[in-house]
Design a protein around this nucleic acid. Sequence first.
DNA 1: GTCTGCATGTAACTGGTTACATGATTAT
DNA 2: ATAATCATGTAACCAGTTACATGCAGAC
Lengths: 187, 187
Amino acid sequence: MALEHALLVSLTERFGSGYELARRFDKSIGFFWSATHQQIYRVLRRMEELGWIDGTAVTQDGRPDKKVYRVSPAGSAELARWIAEPTEPGKLRDELAVKIRAAAHGDIAAVCAEVARHRDRHAERLELYRLMEKKDFPAPDQLSGTALHQYLVLRGGIRVEEGFTQWCQEVLDALEHTRTPERQRRP
Amino acid sequence: MALEHALLVSLTERFGSGYELARRFDKSIGFFWSATHQQIYRVLRRMEELGWIDGTAVTQDGRPDKKVYRVSPAGSAELARWIAEPTEPGKLRDELAVKIRAAAHGDIAAVCAEVARHRDRHAERLELYRLMEKKDFPAPDQLSGTALHQYLVLRGGIRVEEGFTQWCQEVLDALEHTRTPERQRRP
DNA sequence: GTCTGCATGTAACTGGTTACATGATTAT
DNA sequence: ATAATCATGTAACCAGTTACATGCAGAC
């Protein structure tokens, strides 16, 4: 049920249309909770039915009409309620781990290539996040409120990506070591 | 599509019934890819239709009959094919991050409690994984084959849980610091 | 004249969860 | 008695993805 509430957060801070929300999701919130525009439209409709948000049709010229949503008092209450409610830590789901575990039943060289690819992807993400950290939060000690919370989530992303890149490297080292054990010790 | 292949791995190493697979999933593979027994039964049926596995009804006395599955040559081929196929790094989905991001719109004390709870859960998992590491893999340098791959996946779990516990602590420190900033400096 | 951006939508499908049912055996 | 374990299943549901459709505006 987090998508609804992620949208409530986004709309609380700035009202907008489904399209705009989908674009916002490509940044910040989308790093840890993503959704396609179809899913967003559907959820917005349901949220409007529930009375959590109010939609207003806005006619535009030169552009398609749009429907702008605002959080209702009921929506704010729901968000506050949800925040205080305990959540189960979600389970991990990593296909790469399944492949590593399955490596003995296939081509180990291919698994290595795959792990290297993932390592590079995670390293890229990590670099992006570190750039954002430097640029958007140069003085983290002085942060408070929403800016602080945004920073803390970004820190989470950084830690996760660090963990993944390091793990991929560890796996690569171990797998390649067993593939060519003698060569490692030659002068 | 990873559940099918996780089941193929499990069945390749030891044949078994749906029930047994579900129980195995509670350990090892289940740490990074879990499934309910209903989902497993359904997927097994589909896999049998595809010819990846062969099921044999086994009558037991004193216990309910069961259906034991074995991987067919086609199943082995499919597993090998899948292993070599590239996969997209899956997106993160963490509700806790959404809550932290939303903290300004609700009760920050409740968010702190939630973060502390998650930190403890992750710390428990971490301890469990470290125990498994010590007990099941006392000499990781000598590992090879499936045992090595199991170990490497466990290492991933350890890194992830380390990252999460540390992140939760960082968030807690930051949030509690802003709640009572003056008291931190009193003698 | 083709491509990108804005803006929304339907339909079909996949993957997974929740709730419930059955029925025997063994352990407390 | 009653609870847990073994073993499988149906049905309904929820969340999310993929594919496709529409149509105009502005840029190249």
